[in-house]
Write a protein that binds this DNA or RNA. Structure first.
Lengths: 337, 337
DNA sequence: ACACAGCTTGGAAAGCTTTACAATTTAAAA
DNA sequence: TTTTAAATTGTAAAGCTTTCCAAGCTGTGT
């Protein structure tokens, strides 16, 4: 029983059990190597003192932390939760815990202290916009990138085939005779925006729609509000598009709302396609046609790679590309004549 | 320069700079108390060695961790992100970092190791369903609850006035002559569900609608799917309600979709009210009338309380109640005759 | 009776800092 | 010049584990 009110230490347990601290430690982390009788005694002493191991001390000694960090650009986007769940499932197998930090909450420097091997055993970066200098840090734990990619950062990457995804979408629209297709993009420098734009253009080319027919893309920001606002822009056009491809479902949802409010019917007057296939897309009216990503798989794959890296199976950084699937629903129809 | 490839220690810096480790430590954490010239020398040595302080060792010595944990029931719900952002802003003032764990990802026991003062300096619990035994732990850091409350857990609580919120909503509906109001609730044991149900019933009473006129509530789960499904249930009723009050916006959105798909018009045929006022509610068609919570304020308030607790200003656990505001939009209208 | 192996346990070092206290140097005051 | 105070730096302990190594003990085979 400890004299003061401080939490019990391992030595308190040892004293009460009449054994050495080494033995107590072994009971706690390697029970099978200590004799049955001693183990029983120690376990009872642990109970009695209410002892719990001090993680900080253990981590210091063992030179690891037991946590991996996920850097997420914006938690408000439900898109990430399934990825995180995929990560977390894999980590659990190695008794690692997943901590999430919303990088949106850490403007600038404040992020640096996290990127240290004394803070975490590894980090999964879901934010492609972070300053690569942050990771140039000498004592940085292993990193893998997922979803978004940072060209300046040489690590394993797990991304979906964004280019193929948007090309699929465009091809679908072109089969429905759409030629005037507007692209509502994400933020300009974003890696997703870039890849999806490439697929968009590739799709148009493949459909025999040349650059002279292309519409100027509208620069968005992945927000519902921007989608809504874009509806106004479309209404103001002299020859509006017959279809809009949006770089994410949130914008598509906002857009459909705006169009409907303006008296246009989706898909009769105008078709809309989204990207990500968030849950709501199945339930809105009309149900949204969208490019599906295998989110859970992105997460688990990234976690596997991190675990390998951690076990010193350091391999040449590779980019692992996951397929997409076009989910055709009700928001797309044949182009108006 | 370290012999091996291990990361540099403070003693490496000290040797290079020709000072004691104590001095180096002071330069790093209390620069102003060391002489200008020495400081310069040390800073250069830090640069040269690429030294970064080992957080684990520092934390062990200082008996704290610099992190506070937020336990969130389900990250897929965008409702939480603004709360988290509120928390994070307050914590930054004390140089604390916010780590988020999605309790949904940690079924059962695996959560216990987190609730330890060697893991975090405090925890903010947003999940009211967690087993109180988890927190009965002897070495648990200070706790405050937010949003949802766990009656069995005696801590500071920051919650919105759910009862008042739903009563406001019902009164609004009753002023529009609605009497047959259906309640689509959250999960049965959930504290929010209970409080909102109370407000619902109080509102009906106040509007002069007695229990004999009440409709049996529909038990939901805060999911869009459940809202959609409820639309079917309503259609099957012989005398359907003229209005539906939903315990969250997600369900309301799903419900509106389902109703619209069935050919009913919101709000002409049936009015819908949500709770939480998520971003999308402003953009759907029709725009959703909803009960607003001051999410950011919930978060920052909870964080303040935790900080106080941490500074030993331990006070009697209190429940702090924040107001709500009914945001009237387009999904509610006069009841059909 | 002895040698040897295997199982248990204890002592003490190592993991890396921060910080109380003491010691030294420097500046100021008398 | 001496005394006193202030500023700066160093030494060593403390924070709490885990784990290497050695030692003790038990039992078996010769």
């Amino acid at each position: 029983m400890p004299k003061t009110n401080r939490p019990p230490r391992i030595s308190d347990v040892a004293r009460l059990a009449g054994v050495s601290v080494a033995t107590v430690s072994r009971v706690l982390s390697n029970p099978e190597i200590v004799a049955e009788t001693t183990r029983k005694i120690v376990e009872r002493a642990v109970q009695e003192t209410g002892y719990t191991v001090n993680m900080t001390a253990r981590n210091l000694r063992q030179q690891h932390t037991g946590v991996v960090l996920a850097l997420v650009p914006n938690l408000a986007n439900p898109f990430f939760s399934e990825i995180l769940s995929g990560i977390s499932q894999v980590l659990r197998r190695d008794a690692l815990s997943l901590f999430i930090v919303d990088t949106w909450n850490y403007p600038g420097l404040t992020l640096a202290p996290f990127l240290n091997h004394s803070r975490s055993d590894g980090v999964i970066v879901l934010d492609g916009q972070l300053d690569p200098a942050l990771f140039a840090h000498p004592n940085c734990p292993p990193i893998v990138q997922a979803c978004e990619e940072n060209a300046a950062l040489s690590t394993h990457k797990v991304i979906t085939d964004n280019k193929a995804g948007s090309r699929q979408a465009i091809l679908h629209l072109s089969r429905l005779n759409h030629r005037r297709i507007l692209h509502l993009t994400g933020p300009v420098q974003n890696s997703l925006t870039i890849a999806r734009r490439q697929g968009f253009e590739a799709g148009l080319m493949q459909a025999g729609i040349g650059p002279d027919e292309w519409l100027e893309p509208v620069r968005g920001d992945f927000s519902v509000a921007k989608g809504d606002q874009t509806a106004q822009d479309i209404l103001a056009m002299t020859t509006p598009p017959t279809a809009v491809f949006c770089d994410c479902d949130e914008m598509a949802l906002g857009l459909m709302g705006g169009l409907k409010r303006a008296g246009l019917d989706v898909p009769r007057d105008i078709s809309v396609v989204g990207f990500d296939n968030i849950e709501l897309s199945r339930y809105c009216v009309p149900r949204l046609t969208s490019v599906r990503q295998y989110r859970s798989r992105i997460g688990s794959y990234a976690a596997e790679l991190l675990l390998d890296e951690r076990r010193q199976y350091a391999s040449q950084p590779r980019t692992h590309i996951l397929p997409t699937e076009l989910v055709v629903r009700e928001s797309t129809a044949t182009a108006k004549a």
